[in-house]
Write a protein that binds this DNA or RNA. Sequence first.
DNA 1: ACGTCCCGCCAGGGG
DNA 2: CCCCTGGCGGGACGT
Length: 821
Amino acid sequence: LKTPLKQVATSHLVLTERQPGCQPLTTPPKPKETPPADPWTPTSNLKMLISAASPEIRSREQRRQLSDSSSEVLQTKHCFQGHLLGDEYEKSQQSRKEKSLGLLCHRFLARYPDYPSPSEKSYICLDEVTEELHVERRRIYDIVNVLESLHMVSRLARNRYIWHGRHNLPQTLQALKKVGEENKYIQQIQMIKKREYEHEFNPDGERNEEMASCYGSSEQSEMSFVELPGVEYRAASVNGRKYKSLRVMSQKFVMLFLVSTPQIVSLEVAAKILIGEDQLEDLDKSKFKTKIRRLYDIANVLSSLKLVKKVHVTERGRKTAFKWTGPEVLPNTQDTKLETTSTSCSPPISESIPSKEQCSKALFPSKGKQNFTRHSSLIKLVKSIENDRRKIQSAPTSPVKISASTYQSLPVFPNTIAQFPAVTKHQLEGQSKTPEEVQMKSALSSPEAVPKLEPSQQPALSQPLGVCPSSHSSVSPVILPHPQSGVSYAIYLHPSQAHTVTTYSPGFMLQPLPCANVTGIKSNNSKVSNKITTEEGDTQRGLDEPTKSLAAEERPETKSETSSKRCLKRSQALPENNLIKRCKSDEESLDTSLTFFPSGYLIPLTHCTHGNKAECSNKEKAGVCSLQHTAYSSPITGVIPMPASELTTVNIPAFHITPLNIMLSPNSIAAAPVLSNSCLNSSSASSAPNPSSSALNFMLQHIGLIPAGVQVPANPVLQHVPVSSHSENISHSSGSTNVQEGKVSYNGIAAPPWGVDNFLFSLQLSAPKEPQEPQAVTENFFRTPGGPNTEPSLTANSDGTQRTSQGTLYIPQRKLEVSED
DNA sequence: ACGTCCCGCCAGGGG
DNA sequence: CCCCTGGCGGGACGT
């Protein structure tokens, strides 16, 4: 079982064996000076063109740089020394770094356009790839799996994937974020931090353990996968192993970024969360280690995608962490999304939209409680799950059965499918769609679209849908409408998870309630601000990237533009409507939120993301489509890809908290578990989320969060100033707020670690002069005396976590530094 | 010495 | 039954 000897040795042997006379084994000269320019793929030229017109150029170029240095070299080498010797030789030559997954990923990505034109589908043949990239198959799986988790590719069959590029990214991220929020990852992170913190002070954490055990029960390491309608589900049916860690892990990892306020996640924390909170004190070291290893793998590919960046956090020691550098995800895009959809979609599609909503509602009357459908492919997993479950034993109490409704089969699907391009459908043979879904589709969707699509999906239909396992012994997909985002989700839950959820979730989690009284207003504001920010961003970017700005600004015709405008208008002009809508959506979301768990296999049903030529062509001319489409017409969402910084404000979910003063005995922490359980029961039983539950949640949270003896009455209003954290070039453009990856520091001293992230912080940005130079950022935490007198303006509640009925100042300040590399 | 993470064994499962 | 998939963890490499 020894790991292969060093390459040197290996190469040596190999050389000797195979190419006795060939070359001296001595260090072969590395062909460094290899001519770069040569496109190594047929598509490279095209890609370049595309990139030229795309806002993504930057990244592309960066990528190219990277690849130029290494991959091209390899490539070239490869070309010239195709024979065995060459390979071996090459292999031996590469340093470990050159073989890194990240690099490999770059090479991989280089083969495909970020935004493939809908008309031309690119397929990925693993055999070809492995051969061309000259890597072992295993490595490709690593890459493909995370790409799949982002819906950038989807599996068609053995050795075969389809490349979607980044078209689906916005949707995916949105979905992931949503799930992440619903999974209370924020709280989990806090918990972990808190624990660590306590650990520092009293190493002999008796209490800690208790807490840990009680707390972490939520969703275990159960596997779930969030899917997008047109893209993934197919794979799900095809591949039973879908609920496997890398994929799921990748999604969860991403979720963590999307929900956490400074979008920085340390590997340690991520690993803990992913492993499952319970039983963490005596965390299995090897398990932890393995998890970390895996996270590195994932992070490496995410890095290649430019979604994250490695940094170091100095928070109780220097930890490696990653910072999200991908596009920010809008929290409430429901309206926008829908609009966008309608706008961007071909007429038939837009028509279908309304019906979609209705449909969803009709189907999910039971306040969005989960409706489960059994996914046949998942049944297999049951056994293993059962085993896992035993191991886990996380659920402290007898599982409360989720209302029967939970396990009901729920067929409903919004007709998202109609939106898929005909082309796509062909490819979808393997898709797993539930019959209902199909039906829905046909019913809702325009005639033309439906017929075409159906055939392709039929195969998938074979899944026993209606079977509702009364017992949660199988993984069941749940389809939920998610008005907020305009996306519906289907979640597949592993039995064990469902279990857990049932028992646990309601009580423990804060219910994200985007808009309530104040909240609603806020959201509007945030939206507006968001908008503004965005525009700023564009402008700024313009300096650096003419193309991009162009794309952003001159798109009168573009759908996205329209949508964005609408958005703006809406937010500005139609506050009331908005509010109303919001509320509605909130309600639903609430329901949903209760339903969702990280452990679920989530399938947002949106319209098709990856456009297909049909779609695209309708409104846009092909040319535009291919070139600019990517840039701003981000599919569905209407979300314009922009630096995270721009959207920061919006990013924060507001939580609805019932005003309630909760007095907790400092030591009540121990009690938390109990409370949660009981609470859960009651809450779960009731179909509608009740205020008390939220209060409870809140309470629980606080219990954990608040130091003993401290009373927390307030509704801390958090001021938030959007901090741009985007690494791109924004920095030089102006003194815009940005926190480059440089350094972020929280000033202050002892701040309870757990609370910090949730506080919105205002950052004082030092005018970034040097893009790459670390900048110091100060975070200020306030606790405002007043009650809900939140400032609508830029303030966003980071999350309800910190809110109380009364405002009291609770200003944790502490140091947190993030340094690059 | 430690952090990063490559490598490939081998089980599981699809075709 | 073969071979694709992909979990998994040893231990190499880099610093």
